[in-house]
Nucleic acid binder design. Structure first.
Lengths: 195, 195
DNA sequence: TCCAACTTTGAAAGCCATTCTAAAAAGGGA
DNA sequence: TCCCTTTTTAGAATGGCTTTCAAAGTTGGA
């Protein structure tokens, strides 16, 4: 059986996700990926050209998948209050080793240059904010939340606060674990939504 | 003339700051620092042991110095409204290449393990928030700002929003330059302070 | 069946942090 | 001042990892 070019890429990215989970994106060697994908390092390079591009592509994949899971899962939550909690839980890192967030950290430390990738990255954060705004609007409509003057703006600010909380979790600052971050985020969000 | 041990370290860190400004913390080679400090690479390693520790120490130095400049400079600003603007300007990156922020990004991507360093890092962000809170309290006292229920909490949230804005600037997301970040930060802060 | 383009491998090149060796310089105590 | 010990310094050796390369293997179409 033979895999088409895009399939091989996807296969490599899954291997990368696995490998990153085990060794972390900073210590990740091309060989770690190649081993897990069952191919040679040179072969992986043939498909991606640069180690960095593997990381970026992996983040894009991971973020794409999470976005899908997000919309799917949030669709099943009727209560907006609960939906906010669920979104926050999905957005924030599950711990200091959270793959998705460690990838983000890596990308920020060494940002891609090409405009197209940057645009996609911006799109991700925008999508999260819009999703949150949608939930808030629904909650306001149902009289569960206090009206917000600009839901998009509010949502964006909340996502920004969560970004920073995530960063503290990743750093492993004393007392800053996943539960703490969730608590902090919820407090900030509730502050504006509940009187 | 002979430099004492701590002086040599400081000398190296200044060289590092210079070097980082020129090549960026990610591409920074130990040799880049050594050259600029007028010593051999081995010698630099003798003092720091690991390249990573140079980066961490450089961030700590840079952050210490900025904290000093901050308190010095803010003491000269009478109007709290102006002081807030000044603080925001000092906090946020001056551009995508901002040394201090690129160092932060590097540290988050590869966090130090030792508790003492982490505690110092946490201290920095705390100090920023306290400084902002102090200004806000003063402004409230003078009747310039709307009263805030918990100034520390407000300040921390604002700093978090700025962290995330900084990250967008560093990434070089389309439209996210230093001016944009300043504008966004000010809007978020004013939102709660001005009615 | 044969050719041209694409895949795949494993080794070579080159770069860099880190370690090591040995020389040089300081610092004291007699 | 003269040794001896400790610290500092330079520069070369090591080992690991990305990236490049050359050659062998496949595929698909003419």
């Amino acid at each position: 059986m033979k895999l088409e070019r895009p399939d091989v890429r996807a296969h490599v990215l899954r291997a990368a996700l696995l490998a990153i989970d085990e060794v972390g994106p900073d210590r990740l060697r091309v060989r770690d990926i190649a081993e897990r994908a069952g191919m040679s390092s040179g072969h992986v390079m043939y498909y991606f050209g640069k180690r960095d591009r593997i990381l970026v592509s992996t983040l894009l994949l991971s973020e794409d998948e999470l976005a899908e899971r997000r919309t799917a899962e949030l669709a099943t939550v009727a209560d907006p209050r609960e939906a906010v909690g669920r979104l926050v839980e999905m957005y924030l890192p599950a711990g200091a080793g959270d793959v998705r967030w460690r990838l983000w950290a890596q990308i920020v430390a060494r940002p891609p240059q090409d405009e197209e990738t940057l645009a996609r990255i911006a799109g991700f954060t925008g999508a999260w904010a819009r999703e949150l705004a949608r939930i808030v609007v629904r909650g306001v409509g149902e009289g569960l939340f206090r009206p917000v003057d600009d839901p998009e703006d509010h949502a964006m600010r909340m996502c920004r606060i969560m970004d920073s909380l995530a960063s503290d979790v990743l750093l492993g600052l004393p007392g800053c674990d996943a539960g703490w971050a969730h608590e902090q985020a919820m407090r900030a969000i509730r502050r504006e939504l509940l009187p």
